[in-house]
C-alpha cells in the first residue's frame, strides 16, 4: 500500500503507514484513504475528529488551489476593458471630368495678321492650351465630346495629346475629327485612374465661306464604355 497523497500531512501519514497490512488498491483514490482512515479509527490509531479534520483540510486546500487556478487568469483578463463598434466605409462610383480654360477663341484674323495664303481657299488656326482632367474609379471609361452648334459655318476639329494617367490606364486617343452635335469618342479604354491631357482645337474656314462667328458650347462627358 502506498498513498503518496499523504505527504502533505505528515502526521496523518505516519499513522496510516502503520496500517501497512491493510491491502487497499490505490486505484480507490480518496475513497481508499477514507477506508484506511476508518480502519485506523477502528484500531484506535487516529481519532474520528482527526480524520474529519484531515479530510476538511484536504478539501480546503484543493478548493483554494482550484479557485486560484480559475480566478487568477480571470484577474489578468480583467486588467483591461474593451469596447467595439462598427464603422462602415462606402465608396460610390465616381467619374469626374474638368476642362480649362472655360473659353477658347480661335480667330482667323484678316489684315496684316491674316493666315490666308494666296491661292488657297482653306485657312486654319489652332489652340492647344486647353487641358482635360479626369478621374474615375470605374472600369473601362471613355470621354466623348459634342457641340451644341448646328449647323456650323466653319469646321472645328479636336484631338488630344500628351495623355498621362496615375497610376496607369491612360486609355487610347482617337485621331483628329470634326466636332458635331453627336457624341464622338475622344479618349477610350480609361482604366481606374486619374489623369490629364492636352486638347488641340483647330478652326478651319474657307475664304469662300465669308466672315462670321461660330459659338460652340462643347460638352465633354465621361461615361462607361
Amino acid at each position: 500500500m502506498s498513498f503518496r497523497g499523504f505527504i502533505l500531512l505528515k502526521g496523518y501519514q505516519m499513522r496510516v503507514q502503520t496500517m501497512e497490512t491493510t491491502k487497499i488498491p490505490k486505484e480507490n483514490g480518496i475513497f481508499g484513504l477514507y477506508l484506511i482512515a476508518r480502519i485506523a479509527i477502528f484500531n484506535g490509531t487516529i481519532t474520528r475528529a482527526k480524520m474529519i479534520s484531515f479530510f476538511s483540510k484536504r478539501t480546503i486546500y484543493l478548493t483554494v488551489i482550484a479557485l486560484f487556478l480559475v480566478l487568477l487568469p480571470l484577474t489578468a483578463f480583467c486588467q483591461s476593458q474593451s469596447r467595439s463598434h462598427t464603422v462602415t466605409v462606402i465608396v460610390d462610383p465616381v467619374s469626374v471630368i474638368a476642362v480649362a480654360p472655360v473659353a477658347v477663341n480661335l480667330d482667323i484674323p484678316g489684315g496684316a495678321t491674316a493666315v490666308v495664303i494666296a491661292g488657297q481657299d482653306e485657312m486654319r488656326v489652332t489652340d492647344q492650351n486647353s487641358i482635360l482632367r479626369w478621374g474615375t474609379n470605374e472600369d473601362e471609361g471613355k470621354v466623348t465630346i459634342s457641340t451644341s452648334l448646328t449647323p456650323q459655318t466653319f469646321r472645328l476639329q479636336v484631338a488630344v495629346s500628351n495623355i498621362q494617367a496615375n497610376p496607369t490606364g491612360a486609355g487610347s486617343i482617337v485621331t483628329q475629327f470634326d466636332v458635331t452635335d453627336i457624341d464622338h469618342d475622344l479618349i477610350t479604354n480609361i482604366a481606374k485612374s486619374s489623369g490629364h491631357c492636352n486638347i488641340l482645337y483647330t478652326g478651319i474656314a474657307l475664304a469662300s465661306a465669308g466672315i462670321g462667328t461660330d459659338s460652340h458650347t462643347l460638352t465633354l462627358t465621361m461615361v462607361a464604355q
Binding site: 464603422v87 466605409v89 462606402i90 465608396v91 482632367r133 478621374g135 486619374s194
Partner: peptide, 12 residues
C-alpha cells in the same frame, strides 16, 4: 455605428 461615404473626387 457610423458610416463614411465617399461620393466625389477631384479630376486628375
Amino acid at each position: 455605428n457610423p458610416t463614411l461615404r465617399i461620393t466625389s473626387g477631384i479630376p486628375d
